[in-house]
Design a protein around this nucleic acid. Structure first.
Lengths: 339, 339
DNA sequence: ACTTGGCACTCGGGAACACAGAGTGCTAGA
DNA sequence: TCTAGCACTCTGTGTTCCCGAGTGCCAAGT
């Protein structure tokens, strides 16, 4: 059905359309990519490709434009991820190396990715549940209030102010802190609920109300942050990239954490470290027709911490974009593993 | 030069133009606002106003449009800040009350403000230098690394991982922590450099290298974060508000922390708690012609912590916007003061 | 069985043009 | 000082027309 030449034609159409943003006709195609066949032949192939739904024409007597299905085939079988240039690699490295804390890493990453791809970059903060506890701190503020600080191995810090049901002396707080740390240090956040379950019983009865309050806040912190923080950058690139229509919808989606989350995460089930590409209508979110998402997981080794990616018009340069996303994910993973 | 009726005409022009987004002509004006004079008279007044530079016409035989100078006069003398409705007040209150930590307060505030004004909201994180130290924590990670955590009275938490020049026992770390806390607790961040200046000399000689390292990181944290964090929300509102041209520039400005900072802060010198309005070209930043900024300081009592505001097209509804900004600033200040 | 050249057909987009309508400036009169 | 009337000047819109890019199809060539 689709012989090699037809595939070559499809590839050529995608490449041309991506670079010119104009429907591409048979003549120009036959010239630019030396296909060694006549425009008429190309037309026949195009007709076949259109029949199969890989390309379409905006109106009669205009050139052809790839459909989502066409891009899909291109990404899956006709393109190779393009590695970054040496200069780009070095730029990434030095730019990310300067980060001072987790916030900074994420901020720098998202900017870097936006600049590199000239599209909108999206980065999810490392997921809490897969990280481990590095330290728990209880800081007395007044005699009825303490601040709970939870530090994870990824450098993330969560804090909450807790109102205690009764006055608790500082020494008791200190004791509780010691117990908590000995109990939780190094444990995965997912295990915390189990580990602290019997804690109240192991402590003096008079402390139990306070302990219960503190623990409930601690657990709350864990589940609450399960819906994670996401940041984006490079919105200005949308305005440039001949988007115009639907721009409002895209911006709205970007500011809606939940939507963004779903977009990044939807395909993370099987092999999180693989690049996932969702093209146009595959996104199943109205208003994001016309945009594609290239995403991947990042994190040290096999425990993927979170995801990052870029969002741009369906007519993006997939090989380059995929190369950039993959490279950035790797570098960030390195940075996080090292710290 | 400008009698009362001319001012009334200007006010009417601004109001009409803001609500219709179309140049307003003499006839429509005389009808809609019962000025009790004929269109011809209005035309005369318009001619005078144009002479003075308060309004302009896009082209001959079109209606008039306010200039930046016209908006300025309107804001300064012809309008009254419009208070929010009771329902809006309650909405703000309940929405902000649910915040769990500083991050959450800021995030909610910026979203709230964006939604309330239907424009781009900008919020600066509370400034470190004006807050006070609530607690300093040193958490041993390995024998050569500690994590420094700085907690301020606004609930802000800064952390840094420090590589020590030599192995330091946990007990010494604990001692140092105690000293630091007794020394800094409750002090303004601005005073920290002075307060810790002679600290190394007051400690055992063998600890000095480690102490020096820790202090340098601490001080670094203070100055580094002096250029503050800023967040924005509601970019989608730009796309809606008949902006079209220059949108890219605006988005770029929004993502440029430094620029944003300057825009918010530029007029904060005299009375920080007052509303400041910068209209169009007053912003002196190319690409932000066509946008106005309404900002104000927030924070408990007389020590203003930071600034927040909104950014929108010059043809915005100033009375309403100003009302919303002022109200939100007040509520946020309350929330911060309470926690 | 493909490929190719030729040819008629279709449509979008730009240029030229006319025209209605809104809005103005000016002048003369109340 | 305000008002009414009037001539004038624009923009925006609709119409028409035409060019050209691009297509689909057919018949001939390899």
């Amino acid at each position: 059905m689709l012989d090699d030449r037809k595939l070559a034609v499809l590839r050529a159409i995608v490449e041309d359309y991506v670079s010119t943003n104009e429907p591409v006709g048979s003549k120009a195609l036959a010239e630019r990519h030396n296909l060694k066949v006549s425009p008429a032949t190309v037309r026949n192939d195009m007709a076949a490709l259109e029949e199969e739904g890989y390309i379409t024409q905006p109106h009669t007597s205009a050139g052809r434009v790839p459909t989502d299905k066409g891009y899909r085939l291109f990404v899956d079988r006709l393109s190779q991820i393009k590695p970054l240039s040496g200069a780009e690699r070095r730029a990434i490295e030095t730019f990310l190396a300067g980060a001072v804390d987790l916030d900074d890493v994420v901020t720098r990453t998202v900017r870097l990715l936006a600049q590199l791809t000239r599209q909108v970059a999206v980065v999810q903060y490392p997921t809490l549940t897969r990280s481990t506890v590095r330290h728990v701190e209880l800081v007395p503020l007044t005699e009825r209030r303490v601040m709970l600080v939870l530090i994870t191995n990824t450098g993330r810090v969560e804090q909450r102010v807790i109102e205690l049901p009764e006055v608790v002396e500082d020494t008791r707080i200190a004791h509780l802190r010691a117990v908590l740390n000995s109990c939780l240090d190094g444990c995965g956040l997912g295990n915390v609920p189990d580990l602290v379950a019997d804690l109240p019983e192991r402590l003096p009865a008079e402390d139990r109300p306070a302990v219960a309050t503190i623990l409930s806040v601690l657990l709350e912190t864990l589940v609450e942050r399960h819906d994670e923080k996401i940041v984006f950058a490079g919105a200005a690139n949308l305005a440039g990239a001949g988007f115009s229509v639907g721009l409002r919808d895209v911006l709205e989606a970007l500011e809606e954490q939940v939507v963004l989350m779903r977009l990044l995460g939807e395909t993370s089930t099987d092999t999180p470290s693989a690049l996932t590409v969702r093209i146009g209508s595959e996104n199943a979110y109205t208003g994001l027709r016309g945009t594609s998402i290239v995403a991947t997981g990042y994190g040290s080794g096999d425990n993927q911490l979170a995801r990052l990616g870029v969002l741009g018009p369906t007519r993006m340069d997939y090989p380059v974009t995929m190369g950039a996303v993959r490279a950035v994910a790797r570098y960030v993973s390195q940075i996080l593993a090292a710290s």
